[in-house]
Computed example of a mutant assay.
Amino acid sequence: MSGNRQLLTDTLAKTAGENRAALIAYLPAGFPTVDGGITAMTTILESGADIFEVGLPHSDPVLDGPIVQTADDIALRGGLRIKDVLRTVRAVYAATGKPILIMSYWNPIQRYGIERFTTELAAAGGAGCILSDLPVQESTEWRARADALGLATVFVVAPSSTNDRLAEITTAGSGFVYASALMGVTGSERSVGAAASTLVRRVKATTDLPVCVGIGISTPAQATEVAAFADGVIVGTALVKALLDAPDEQTGLTAVRHLTTALADAVRAR
């Protein structure tokens, strides 16, 4: 079975045709439980998100802030395995028909096996993978396998990237480019506008791929700001926090439903 990279491409083309940014949401798999995570992700997509990033929790999440680290720890202590992450992708895609990517550090995938991981991700209906720490120059084997199975390979670029480096990364990637709005970990509270706008402009000079902005976006106002210049707005930590802060699962689902609806309205308000 081929993966759903084309569905991802078509979804981003559709939102561009509607003159708006796509809303891309993130939660780690297995949080608060595997089944609870599937329900939360499905709820978020049904509340207006266009694309979902399923996090593959890692024991050393160096790019994640304390809120996502807490959720990862809950998932790992619950016994989460890669098979559960893939089951999450399969279930959320089956329930919504929307593009589902896995966001992961490279080490767990390498240990699992590139051929095995890509085959199972494609079979689950996944659209691809965001590889936050895989250097482009070491990605040849992964990209060949992903391309053969119809999976997108999304790389992350940062404001510190040189123009030559941006061109190298965007040439190798597919699906979209993940532009980090800030230097730092997820969940930062600083303003994202100026640095992100400059980075998006620099990236667009090197590629026709959509450029989606994440890290540091947590409010509808920030989403509106970023949607003015980006092809997609990525929100994760705020959704994780809404579930963490809730006293029970049902309250958490209500909280993420309301937040997602507000964010979906925000990306349409540009």
Results as ranks from 00 to 15, higher is better:
S180V: 06
D147S: 11
R145Y: 03
P99L: 13
I114K: 11
G193N: 13
G113D: 03
S191T: 14
L151K: 05
D147G: 08
L182I: 15
V185A: 00
A194D: 14
G193V: 12
S139N: 08
S132L: 14
P135W: 03
P135V: 02
I130Q: 03
G187M: 06
A158G: 10
T88I: 09
F155Y: 10
T118F: 06
E138H: 10
G173A: 15
E120C: 05
S174N: 06
S139W: 07
Y105N: 13
S160K: 08
G173Y: 02
Y178T: 00
L151H: 05
A122Q: 04
A195F: 07
I114N: 09
P108S: 09
R190V: 13
S104I: 02
G193L: 13
F117D: 01
S174F: 01
S161P: 00
I130F: 03
S180Q: 03
I100H: 09
G150C: 01
G113T: 01
E168N: 03
I169Y: 04
S161I: 00
V157R: 04
Y178W: 00
A94I: 10
G175P: 09
R116N: 05
D133W: 06
E168Q: 09
C129W: 00
R90K: 13
F176A: 02
T88Q: 07
A194I: 12
I169D: 06
E138Y: 08
S191K: 12
F176D: 03
T140I: 13
L166Q: 14
S188K: 15
A124N: 11
Q137W: 05
G125N: 10
P135T: 00
S188A: 15
A124M: 11
P99C: 11
G150H: 02
V92T: 14
Q137Y: 07
A194Y: 11
T119S: 13
A122C: 07
V154M: 04
T186A: 01
V156N: 07
P108C: 10
Y93K: 13
S174H: 05
G193F: 12
P99I: 09
P99Q: 08
V192W: 11
A146G: 04
M183L: 15
